[in-house]
């Protein structure tokens, strides 16, 4: 359940989050640049981890406790989710192959403020379907961000994603949701990527959300690897994930994790 109420942020607090988001955006841009066939996800993890620490931040994913008992805390500073992995892939010594797609999700704590962002990129040349999946998921995030207006409801955000994704013939993962963010990585409310427009809690100015559509080519069902983290599409189809940390501003959504030129 969404225990507790939404922590609305003042403009000063938003400035703190903005600094955190900016650092994360630069780290993600570096990782994105480093993606190439033959590079291991461990190496990508190091790129992000070092850049964040060198600039006074702390990678927030490292050591996150698992949702289920008996599973080790998350061992990486990024989630590296290749191909059919939806989210929470653990960085490893496996090299990326030409034609893979990889989702990179990362979080930063700077001066106590969390930011959380993800991007999915193609490794070299990918087939048309993978390219379309990435484009649709990116557009779905843009549509969701555009719906994060004061007076709108959470359902409007979810409906924006769901409408776009399903009209493209893909499916929205329901097992995972976006979340409020601030002094903690996960704050209320939960932000589903599906729902009916006009339903759910009203968005107020100062609401900070991590909006993160996760899209599968095939069925939306999820299965977990034995490590307890890696979440794959149940049918093995490709999956993409984009995420921004966004604040509902009086004049419109403020994207805190916008990458330069992206």
């Amino acid at each position: 359940m969404n225990a507790g109420s939404v922590n609305l942020k003042t403009s000063e607090q938003i400035e703190g989050m903005r600094a955190s988001g900016r650092l994360l955006a630069r780290a993600l841009a570096l990782v994105e640049e480093a993606v190439a066939p033959g590079v291991t996800t461990d190496e990508l993890n190091t790129v992000a981890d070092e850049y964040i620490r060198d600039h006074g931040g702390t990678p927030s994913f490292l050591g996150v406790p698992a949702a289920a008992p008996g599973i080790a805390p998350f061992p990486g500073s990024i989630c590296a989710s290749t191909n059919d992995v939806i989210v929470h892939g653990i960085p490893s010594g496996n090299a990326l192959q030409e034609g893979d797609i990889i989702g990179i999700d990362c979080g930063v704590i700077l001066d106590g403020w969390h930011s959380d962002s993800a991007v999915t990129v193609a490794v070299g040349e990918v087939d048309d379907e993978a390219e379309r999946l990435i484009a649709v998921t990116r557009n779905a995030l843009d549509a969701a961000v555009a719906a994060a207006l004061p007076g709108n409801r959470l359902g409007d955000v979810g409906a924006a994603v769901q409408g776009l994704v399903e009209s493209a013939g893909f499916s929205v993962v329901r097992r995972f949701v976006g979340h409020g963010i601030g002094k903690a990585m996960h704050e209320p409310p939960q932000v589903p990527n599906f729902g009916a427009a006009g339903s759910g809690a009203v968005l107020e100015v100062g609401t900070a959300l991590a909006i993160e559509p996760m899209v599968n080519v095939g069925s939306p069902d999820v299965r977990f690897d034995a490590d307890g983290w890696t979440a794959r599409s149940a049918d093995g189809s490709l999956s993409a994930h984009f995420e921004h940390t966004v604040v509902v501003g009086a004049t419109g959504p403020i994207v805190l994790t916008q990458r330069a030129g992206a």
Binding site: H88, D105, V177, E212, M214
Partner: peptide, 9 residues
């Protein structure tokens, strides 16, 4: 990092 959906749980 995505959160597990309470509704789904």
């Amino acid at each position: 990092m995505a959160q597990r959906s309470a509704r789904e749980a």
